[in-house]
Computed example of a mutant assay.
Amino acid sequence: MKVINKVLVVGYGSMGRRRIRLTSELLPDAVFYCVDSNVERQKQATEDGHQAVSSLQEGLDIHPDIAFVCTSPGHHAELLLQIVAAGVPVFTELNLTSNKYDMLLEASVEYQVPIFVSSTLVYKKQMNLFKEMVGKQSKPLTYMYHVGQYLPDWHPWESYKDFFIGRKETNGIREIMAIQLPWIVDCFGKIADVRVTHQKCTDLDIQFPDSVILSIVHESGHIGVFVVDVTSRKATTHLEVIGEDIHVFWDGHNDDLFKLNIDTKELESVEVYASEEHVEGYSDNIAEEPYRDEIREFIRTIDGESPRYGLENDAYILGIIDQIEKEYMSQYNK
């Protein structure tokens, strides 16, 4: 394995700090260099024991071994191109636009540098278990999936108007779809057709719907309903997978996954993780293990292993989301 001593982290917000904390567990001897234009965050990084730098070029001049891009998800492309051109393997957080993806793919090949795209739920063991269960079925399945949380509760310490989830281009509905659709497609297959219903039922000062219902037909023959909202006053994740030979229920945590025993008609608990780690300030259905696992896979890609989810996969998902938004975005212009 390549020796990693210097880690560059672009963006010292909540995700940047999470990546540092988890990466330091895997690479305890690494030194972290934090790029952030915000002087207060530079100060915080220094107080936390890291090296603070004020620009990406200054960080690249240190010749880091790997880099993480943890800035707002609408503006990653230029940063990634600059990092790849410097020959540095890079991990990018969730992208909400496919801007310059063709250039990124070409640059990755030209400079022989991996670009690892975060898709945390692809690495969550529950989702891998669902994929295994679905793969064993010989008949089409139906699923019902609801994910929602009231927008101001996402980051209670700041106004949603000052956070990217409140902006039209990188809105909270789009973010939930970008987080969830990768594992849904991985589990049930590519999307053949999607029909969209939407509304705005809150007084939130936003230029996008707060509630969207997707009726999805997969190329595999499976069908599903995916409800996405930024309205739910209790953070909600609820999944049912239904078929003649299977019925699965999940409410987003480690201890609430159940599978119906078809013979006895009893619900049987399915334990996935022996325990889960949670960080204060986040919803209790957000666990740290998948974030840690995708960093492990990023490190393995440096030695030539192919990731489970790459730029091509991400471009496909973002294309689906663009298609969905065309159904309604023009109706929410102020």
Rank of each mutant, 00 (worst) to 15 (best):
C34A: 09
C34L: 11
V35I: 12
V35S: 07
V35Q: 06
N38A: 10
N38P: 11
V39E: 15
V39G: 15
E40W: 00
R41Y: 15
R41G: 15
K43A: 14
A45G: 08
A45Q: 09
T46G: 13
D48P: 11
D48E: 13
D48Q: 07
G49F: 00
A52Q: 03
A52H: 01
A52F: 02
S54D: 15
S55R: 05
S55C: 01
L56W: 05
L56G: 03
Q57M: 04
E58Y: 13
E58G: 10
E58K: 12
G59Q: 07
G59C: 05
L60K: 14
L60C: 10
D61L: 00
H63D: 15
H63F: 14
P64G: 08
P64H: 09
P64M: 11
P64A: 12
I66N: 04
I66W: 12
I66F: 12
A67T: 08
A67F: 10
F68E: 06
V69C: 03
T71L: 03
S72G: 11
H76F: 05
H76G: 04
A77Y: 02
L81A: 03
L81N: 04
Q82L: 06
Q82W: 08
Q82E: 09
Q82S: 06
I83V: 08
A85G: 10
A85M: 09
V88G: 06
V88W: 03
V88R: 06
P89N: 02
P89F: 02
P89C: 07
F91K: 11
T92Y: 12
E93M: 10
L94G: 10
N95H: 06
L96R: 14
L96M: 08
T97V: 07
T97D: 12
T97Q: 09
S98D: 09
N99G: 09
N99Q: 10
N99F: 04
N99R: 10
N99S: 10
Y101M: 04
Y101L: 03
D102Q: 13
D102W: 13
M103F: 13
M103H: 14
M103L: 14
M103N: 13
E106A: 01
E106Y: 00
A107I: 07
A107D: 01
S108C: 07
S108F: 10
V109D: 11
E110L: 15
E110I: 15
E110P: 05
V113L: 01
P114M: 01
I115Y: 02
I115C: 00
I115A: 00
V117M: 11
S118W: 08
S118T: 08
S118Q: 13
S119C: 07
V122M: 02
K124W: 15
K124D: 14
K125S: 06
K125E: 08
Q126P: 01
Q126M: 07
M127L: 12
N128F: 11
F130L: 00
K131W: 00
K131Q: 00
E132V: 01
M133V: 13
M133L: 06
M133R: 08
V134S: 00
G135T: 01
G135M: 01
K136Q: 08
S138P: 08
K139C: 04
K139L: 07
P140G: 03
P140Y: 03
P140E: 02
T142F: 15
M144Q: 15
Y145V: 00
Y145G: 04
H146I: 14
H146W: 14
V147L: 03
